Simulated assay, not measured.
Amino acid sequence: GTIEDIPVLAGISHERGIPFHTDAVQAVGHIPVDVDELGVDALSLSAHKFHGPRGTGALYLRDGFSIPPMVEGGGQERGLRSGTQDVASAVGMAAALEEACEDLEGRARRVGALRDRLVSTVLERTPGVRPTGEPDPHRRLPSIASFICHDVDGELLVVLLDRAGVAAATGSACSTGSTEPSHVITAMGWDDPSWNRGTLRLSLADDVTDRDIDLLCERVPRCIERARLLSGFSR
């Protein structure tokens, strides 16, 4: 959930003649995103993160910047990817993004306040749990609550939460199915196996309610304690 300083990182990359791409899937539709201010060569986004059609996304390329074709053979997508375009999904994505950007800052403040209440309550009620990422809420995505839990198997925790009616994730979506600790968490300094296998990420939709947060504050601590008893790391 940490908001990185993309303009600085892109500048460092460009000083060395290296093109810069940012994965903005978690950010677009939740905070203001301006490709000119970011100074990136490429930016990717996904429609399902802002209530658009699943399986649809977009890749921004700066004027004058090109990449090799993904699928050759036809002239679709300006020669970058051959095949029939899913026009309906593209239109649906554009409509969803336009709606998501209405009162973006107001929605971010509301969701961020609910996220802060969730985080503080989980930490207060559950020993051996710490937040991960940037501690300053102004430098975090308003929709992401991220934790690391001592003596907890993250995969088991996600299963218990699912049974309790809570959709959650552990590790990275890019490494689903892997039993290894998240390389991101390890790079952040969490190299103790009793900690780095217990990551938990909760994403809040922009229509999240106070009642939803009440339920999360009740179920998440309970499931963490249950997972700790079943994980067996301390035995």
Rank of each mutant, 00 (worst) to 15 (best):
R125V: 04
A108F: 03
C223V: 07
L43C: 13
C149I: 09
R107T: 12
G55I: 07
G29Y: 03
S231V: 03
F65E: 13
L215R: 08
M188N: 03
G52A: 02
I185L: 15
D153Y: 02
R222V: 03
P69K: 01
V166C: 07
H14C: 10
E99W: 01
V152T: 04
S44F: 05
A24N: 08
H51M: 13
V33N: 08
L157H: 01
G79A: 12
H138K: 14
E37L: 15
E77P: 03
Q76V: 03
P32T: 06
T209P: 05
R115S: 10
L43D: 03
R219C: 05
G198P: 09
R115D: 03
L43V: 08
S182L: 00
D136C: 09
A187N: 10
L9K: 07
E225W: 00
G128H: 13
Q26F: 03
V208C: 12
D207I: 11
L157A: 11
H150N: 07
V129S: 08
A113V: 06
G171C: 11
E37P: 07
A100Q: 08
S203N: 14
G11K: 07
V159H: 11
I12Q: 15
G128Q: 13
W190T: 01
G64N: 04
D5C: 06
T179W: 13
V87A: 14
C101P: 00
D103H: 09
R219P: 04
R107N: 13
V71C: 05
T2Q: 14
L161I: 08
I6M: 13
D86I: 02
